[in-house]
């Protein structure tokens, strides 16, 4: 019996420098090593039936990545999870394993935590509020069809701002669907170009993947 299994995994530490394509290859090799009964496509060049949802930018950490496998025979979720975890590299951790509940196309949003190192987080906080209070934040965005101007203001939900010791933390919800997709680094880079704004090397972490209705994507 062919079954579809989805797994949520974290990508942290050194693993954040694995690009999307390299991660795909890494999973293929790890699955071969796990000897899980993965299904292959038909045809002259059969390939593993495996999908990595929502590509994560190079350098981002995440605790909400999703991989989907087609298995030739049914196995318990617990077994799939433990066999995968046993062979994955440092920094990639399987968090849960389950049957898919949403279609991949139903993915709509993602939540990110952005950490901006700075000397005075209260001052940076003020600048951030000023940045977001603009009526429009127009930027050029590279898309498949060339450069397009978008309004970041309309796309951004800033859920929380925390003044930490030596850093400002932002909790952002941004579109992450097929139609619209906004990378938090685009927003942060635009903020960084605002006059008088300066902060250190930003750290990004994806916290959640959400459906179009903004409920958790499973």
């Amino acid at each position: 019996m062919k079954t579809t299994v989805r797994m949520k995994f974290a990508k942290t530490g050194r693993a954040k420098y694995i690009s999307h394509l390299d991660l795909m290859r890494c999973f293929q090799r790890c699955i071969r090593r796990s000897e899980l009964p993965i299904a292959y496509s038909e045809g002259f060049h059969p390939h593993m039936q495996l999908i990595l949802a929502a590509a994560l930018s190079l350098g981002f950490e995440s605790q909400a990545e999703i991989i989907e496998l087609q298995l030739k025979e049914a196995l318990s979720f617990e077994e799939v999870k433990s066999r995968m975890q046993a062979i994955l590299p440092e920094g990639i951790e399987i968090l849960s394993c389950y049957a898919p509940q949403h279609k991949m196309g139903q993915m709509g949003f993602a939540e990110y935590r952005v950490t901006l190192p700075c000397a005075d987080s209260a001052a940076l906080h003020e600048q951030w509020e000023e940045f977001l209070s603009q009526p429009q934040i127009l930027v050029e965005k590279k898309t498949k069809r060339g450069l397009r101007e978008i309004d970041l203001k309309a796309q951004t939900e800033c859920l929380e701002v925390t003044e930490g010791d030596g850093a400002l933390m932002l909790l952002l919800r941004l579109p992450a669907g097929n139609a619209v997709n906004v990378n938090p680094s685009l927003l942060v880079d635009t903020f960084g170009k605002m006059e008088g704004v300066s902060f250190g090397f930003p750290a990004y972490r994806r916290l959640k993947l959400l459906t179009e209705e903004k409920s958790e994507f499973f």
Binding site: A15, Y17, S19, P89, F201
Partner: peptide, 19 residues
């Protein structure tokens, strides 16, 4: 190296941690 890795080609070659 963390702030620098994203400025170079193929950063995973400089960070180790491979299987």
């Amino acid at each position: 190296i963390e702030p620098l890795l994203l400025q170079v080609q193929k950063p995973s070659q400089y960070i180790g941690g491979e299987v």
